[in-house]
Amino acid sequence: MRIYTRSGDKGKTSLIYGDRVEKNHARVEAYGTCDEANSMIGLALSYLNEENWEDKDNFMSFMQRIQTILFHVGAELATPEGKEVTWKLKQEHIEELEKEIDKIDQHLTPLKNFILPSGHQASATLHVARTVTRRAERKAVAIDSEQHQQAISYLNRLSDFLFVAARYVNEQCGGTETPLKTDI
């Protein structure tokens, strides 16, 4: 398989099922932003290669599961209205994130104020992934499709998870959370 096809040289790309749309089409924006979030998660994980903590392998495995699901969320968003989605996001995927949020949150110091994205490189990168995921959610909402309601819910919950994951990584890797100063 060649990496380049030249089929997008005039500003169009194919959705799933072959429909051709402009590269700035709402669907392309939505699934492209999922891809961007996925890449940021991968970058964050690369910063953890030298780090060690008791539950690191489970954390890394769960993050890679998220990356896989996020890839499928992008594919779902690339599926035109009325066409069958080949891999359907389920409520259990959202509940899985909720359970992991609750599990990790038990180990964190309760927040008393807002924090700035900071600390360990992996933590700060997870915060970037969180904000990109929020953008992906907004882009998915712009498609305005009932067909993608589960994807929108998943992206919403994923951004919550990434916030908690960033705090967890900071704690596990000795990073420091920077509280928001109100007296500027």
Rank of each mutant, 00 (worst) to 15 (best):
P117E: 01
S159C: 06
K90T: 05
D35N: 07
K23W: 01
L45E: 11
W53T: 07
E22M: 06
N38L: 10
R138G: 04
A142M: 01
Q121W: 13
D57P: 03
S123L: 08
W53C: 10
L89E: 14
R135I: 13
L77S: 08
L70N: 01
D102N: 14
Q106Y: 00
Q172F: 03
Y4I: 03
A151L: 06
T86K: 07
S61H: 09
N52R: 11
L97V: 02
A26N: 09
I184H: 09
T125V: 10
A30R: 01
E84M: 11
L77R: 02
T125M: 15
L89H: 07
N170P: 11
M40P: 01
Y4H: 07
R167E: 06
K10Y: 10
A140L: 02
V73Y: 07
T178L: 09
E171C: 03
A37W: 00
Y31N: 08
L77Y: 03
V28H: 10
I16F: 06
I115C: 04
Q150W: 12
T176P: 04
E51P: 12
E29G: 02
R167I: 05
V132W: 11
H107K: 09
I66E: 12
T131F: 13
L45P: 05
Q121G: 05
G119L: 01
A151R: 14
Y4T: 02
L116M: 13
G32K: 06
M63Y: 12
T109S: 15
P80Q: 04
Q91W: 03
E98L: 07
L15A: 06
A44I: 03
E98N: 09
A136E: 09
S145D: 13
K10G: 06
G82K: 00
N38A: 07
D19G: 04
Y17W: 11
Y47N: 05
V73A: 07
Y47L: 01
D160R: 02
L48V: 04
